[in-house]
């Protein structure tokens, strides 16, 4: 097996473990490159099926390309799509211009996710996060428990060795499962290239700008780039030393904001 085969096999193993151990699970789909790759791997693991909910947490501020992509591929891949929104906050006018970005992310993403978990009583969630994405994520385990308030006790995580993952969940706790934890950004793009995975057009350069990381439109900035094809993106990533999330406002607003968000349960 080559490098990508090994990554793929490990992810498929983890996805199958999560499904076997927890049954009441959902996969979080932000429609970005990582979670779309995760959907691809879920379909591989289950022979073309996605045997649980695909969950899109919608702030209402996403790019229109994201909504179009979601509607097209959720149909083509026969997803049981659940769109989670914090209607209360949206009606009350919360948005990136109201208040600070921390409370906007908190209400429109974290609280929306909490409400959706409460509603469907998921025991585990599959997420497409990677260790190389951001320092704080380097500390994650493949199977990571969160309490009802979504708090992550990173100081006292259960041991994880030899692919023996946490398989018991109690009360209000839920388990975050991270099948892509060991992939890098470059791995993801090389895999998208190899497998021909469909991807939102925002990642490709238009007028010498492209998005390396996508989320809500008001809080994402494109980076300078000529890469308008997957091949060119792979080439670009082999030489760049600009951090992937450098265009994301939420990370820049203040030092450690990512950790704050994470401790509060932001995915």
């Amino acid at each position: 097996m080559d490098h990508l085969d090994k990554l793929e096999s490990q992810s498929v193993y983890i996805i199958r473990e999560a499904y076997k151990q927890f049954k009441d699970i959902a996969v979080l789909w932000s429609i970005g490159k990582d979670s779309t790759t995760l959907m691809w791997l879920v379909r591989k693991a289950f022979y073309g099926n996605i045997p649980f909910h695909a969950l899109h947490i919608d702030t209402g501020y996403k790019f229109k390309e994201i909504y179009e992509f979601r509607d097209e591929w959720s149909k083509k891949w026969c997803m049981k799509l659940v769109v989670g929104t914090n209607d209360g906050s949206i009606k009350a006018g919360m948005g990136p211009k109201e208040g600070d970005k921390l409370s906007c992310c908190g209400q429109l993403k974290t609280d929306a996710l909490k409400q959706t978990i409460d509603k469907y009583r998921y025991k585990a969630l599959l997420l497409g996060i990677r260790r190389d994405e951001h320092g704080i994520r380097a500390k994650e385990r493949y199977f990571s428990p969160r309490n009802k308030q979504f708090e992550w006790d990173y100081k006292d995580q259960p041991p994880e060795l030899w692919d023996q993952f946490k398989n018991q969940q109690h009360g209000e706790q839920h388990i975050r499962v991270h099948p892509l934890l060991h992939w890098t950004e470059l791995d993801i793009w090389m895999y998208i290239q190899r497998e021909n995975i469909p991807i939102v057009s925002l990642y490709f350069a238009k007028n010498r700008k492209r998005y390396r990381s996508i989320g809500c439109e008001p809080c994402c900035n494109p980076v300078d780039s000529e890469a308008d094809t997957i091949d060119k993106i792979v080439e670009e990533l082999k030489t760049t030393n600009i951090a992937e999330r450098s265009g994301r406002a939420q990370d820049k607003e203040r030092a450690y904001m990512m950790q704050k968000l994470r401790a509060l349960g932001y995915m």
Partner: peptide
Amino acid sequence: DHLEEERDQGITIDTAQTF
């Protein structure tokens, strides 16, 4: 040492990975 607590205490709390 990305975590605040860790930075303050000056010890690595968990297994971190990098490339």
